[in-house]
């Protein structure tokens, strides 16, 4: 048997960092962090169960805002639909959530379907504003802001982590290389470094 090893959709991350990084820690105007993997699941509330599910899992069912719970971040993407991102990337995360919703909705494991890129640095807001049509001005979108939109003609879920601001972008793995190509080129005008983010999320 061949010895299979999981490969990140962006390929060899060490090579990626070497190829795209020129500035050194903390000195680039944009830092693109590539999460090694994302443990996530998509949750659909059954008819009329939206509020019940939100109560059960302890998150806010309002739109346009991510909610942090102990084990995951819930990103609202449509009425009665959320992407749940595990905080500690524990395997079996979806099984645990599925047990607790107990028939109120549907959960599908999505961990291998998406990648996560974290955009930070003093020019992060400018870069993101040029890339999408959302209103990212600080008066409109603060920490926790979350929206599904289109960047470079590719669907992304944008989540603003803090007021610095730092953004996380979730997109389908199949678009990873194409999107990264656009993102790294767009960031190059400001000066950009790439870093690898281990699976444990520090917030």
């Amino acid at each position: 048997m061949a010895d299979f090893k999981p490969l990140h959709p962006l390929g060899n991350l060490d090579e990626l960092v070497e190829k795209h990084s020129f500035f050194g820690p903390g000195s680039a105007a944009i830092t693109i962090g590539v999460r090694k993997s994302v443990e996530c699941a998509q949750l659909f509330a059954g008819n009329g169960n939206q509020a019940k599910i939100a109560k059960k899992l302890n998150f806010d069912s309002s739109t346009g805002k991510a909610t942090e719970t102990k084990g995951f971040t819930a990103l609202p993407i449509a009425p009665g639909q959320w992407i749940l991102i595990s905080k500690n990337s524990a395997p079996g995360f979806a099984d645990g959530v599925a047990k607790s919703i107990n028939g109120l909705g549907y959960l599908s494991q999505q961990s291998d379907s998406r990648i996560c890129l974290r955009v930070s640095g003093p020019k992060a807001r400018e870069l993101m504003s040029r890339g999408c049509r959302l209103d990212l001005h600080e008066s409109h979108s603060g920490a926790g802001f979350c929206a599904q939109t289109v960047m470079a003609q590719i669907g992304v879920i944008l989540h603003q982590l803090d007021d610095n601001p730092t953004y996380e972008l979730y997109l389908y793995a199949g678009f990873a290389r194409s999107f990264f190509h656009w993102l790294s080129h767009s960031a190059a005008q400001f000066g950009c470094d790439i870093e690898i983010i281990s699976n444990q999320i520090k917030r």
Binding site: T63, G64, A78, P79, R133, L134, A147, Q148, T149, V150
Partner: peptide, 11 residues
């Protein structure tokens, strides 16, 4: 009605 005001490019 669900997302708020968004640009035509998303539609």
């Amino acid at each position: 009605p669900w997302c708020g005001t968004r640009d035509e490019a998303e539609f």
